[in-house]
Design a binder for these strands. Structure first.
Lengths: 338, 338
DNA sequence: TTGTATGCGTTATCAG
DNA sequence: CTGATAACGCATACAA
């Protein structure tokens, strides 16, 4: 049980009677060693239970083959799918994930970023985070490749991956309009996010285009949470003329919204239609059955990892944006206006 | 942008005119250096933007200040809360989380364990994993401290953290009995898990004690998933005399079960009461409103990290088990038998 | 094709 | 109290 001494390359060298460098080369699969030697080395290494130390390799290579992921809360179903996507790609090239939750707290984020950078991660994936702090901006431009997910920032020359917010909102609103709604509410997410801004602007423009009634008065600033949905229900139900359909900031928000409306005697979709944005697993369950704009989060995470790895190899290529399509999934929380 | 050269302890030493070792000691806060020197060093280090390399430190210390977490799927809401708990404690002592998803695939798990061990993680937290493979068992007993979560194994001398499966099932069944049910169904989880076995045995014993009707015929082997719940609905609804109440393997399973039952014209709780096990966020939403046995997953994760860290310091203490209490949360999916 | 020597950045040991 | 040196394990440049 007392950690038996580590078997190192040196041990394998001694055992085979070869030099450390030969063993290293053999194990690395370089064609500098003759097949027979390599086979012998490999076999011996295996026999001795040799395992290369990634720590030592990292120090030597000045690269850790690890990717840091910053997320608000992994246990939030609206966010964790991104992580899977990042991991899918990272693993495929031998990278490990270092995970840090920030709970949207700036100081936690700063500390987490420092730690990850001190660990010399090959790169950082930022999933919806604070970008306005000077310490954050400094770290983001200090050499560690970083990619922004779902929140872009024109001031930062970084790769970005997000979803087609404009297209998603347009598709949803057109559908809503098509089934007869004219008074349509909109719950924003946290306004510091570029995705939220894009959606808001699209809502305003499209609402005008489709001739919705008084859209400005039907915009409610919210967050990506169940609780915020509950609050929004209070707002909308308190209006003199409530909307007949509401586009929520995300699925969790939509679910809270529906619960809040229901508590006030407004049933979905009988009295109010509701549209989400996410398509979390939950949205597909019959008990919820939420009409929503699907975001391909796992794909977004994967794309983020791809951009990041590319940047590790070519640090000087210009910043790139990758926008993944969205798709409206019509389910049971929307009904034609009668 | 080309990664400006790293500022090392050597640079700080040169700049201050002191020796590397003195700088190291000063920065480490040892009382070997006189306060004035320390202040000078700290100030200079800060000015130069010095950041200690955790990689180098890890190589030197043969310890990475990182904890590996193996989980089936972080994006599964029934599991991710454990991760948060582990992280809470890990972060509080300066450890970072290395995350690996296995998708319940043995080979993926073996690879992930190898990688994590090669990275010299201080310890491993295994959340519901395969333990029956010889390679896994070997790694688990080869020196890297490990703690088992939700699945214990008497053959493995490892720390274990789980919830009070026995108490939870008893509390649920007593409540079910109290509101008049006599025919009670039970969906197991995957039978290789000790938690599942404990629950099953408790179900059998308690069902007998409470005088339930023909309990053995009302046991269905399932998994922890929505899909398995759907299947279970098929099983139970096909019985000559279906149960009036069903205890599901977990919340997701319960939700699938309810959906499946509903598709077959059986409403919850009108026709069948359903009890879950987990208390995921979702369970509290009005649209679901699931009666369930709450597992304190974040607390379990935290406890796992605590045991692990203790074992890192004292590798030779005997293996320990920590069982956290459960609690029945009565909501709307259970109703008295009429 | 194989061997030797060196450095990645830290910290511990030991000498001054 | 401070300084010099070695070692953690690997991979590379260069020599043989």
């Amino acid at each position: 049980m007392p950690d038996q001494k580590r078997v190192t390359i040196k041990d394998v060298a001694r055992e085979t009677g070869l030099a450390m460098s030969t063993v290293s080369n053999a194990l690395a699969g370089k064609d500098l060693v003759k097949p027979k030697t390599r086979a012998f080395v490999v076999e011996t290494a295996e026999r001795l239970g040799y395992r290369a130390s990634i720590v030592a390799r990292s120090l030597r290579a000045q690269r850790s083959y690890a990717i840091g992921v910053l997320i608000e809360d992994v246990s939030n179903p609206s966010a964790s799918a991104f992580v899977r996507g990042v991991e899918d790609v990272a693993n495929s090239v031998g990278c490990t994930l270092l995970l840090a939750d920030t709970d949207s707290d700036l100081e936690r984020q700063v500390m987490a970023m420092r730690t990850l950078i001190d660990r010399q991660v090959d790169g950082l994936v930022l999933i919806s985070q604070h970008l306005d702090d000077s310490r954050v901006r400094e770290m983001l431009t200090a050499g560690t490749p970083s990619v922004l997910v779902q929140r872009r920032d024109p001031r930062l020359p970084l790769d970005y991956v997000g979803s087609d917010n404009t297209g998603g909102v347009i598709e949803a609103l057109r559908y809503i309009s098509r089934i007869g709604h004219k008074r349509v509410g909109f719950v924003t997410g946290p306004i510091h996010s570029s995705s939220v801004l894009e959606r808001l602007e699209t809502f305003q423009a499209t609402a005008a285009e489709l001739g919705f009634e008084d859209p400005e008065s039907l915009i409610h600033e919210g967050r990506y949470s169940f609780g915020s949905g509950l609050e929004a229900a209070g707002f909308f139900s308190g209006l003199r003329t409530p909307p007949t359909c509401i586009l929520a900031s995300n699925d969790m928000n939509a679910i809270g919204l529906m619960q809040g409306l229901s508590e006030r005697g407004m049933a979905t979709p009988r009295d109010v239609s509701v549209v989400g944005l996410d398509d979390i697993d939950l949205a597909g369950f019959k008990a919820i059955d939420l009409t929503t704009v699907r975001l391909e989060k796992r794909a977004i995470g994967a794309e983020a990892a791809r951009l990041l790895l590319r940047r590790v190899d070519e640090p000087d290529r210009p910043a790139e944006s990758s926008i993944l399509p969205t798709r409206l999934i019509v389910r049971g929380t929307t009904a034609p206006l009668t």
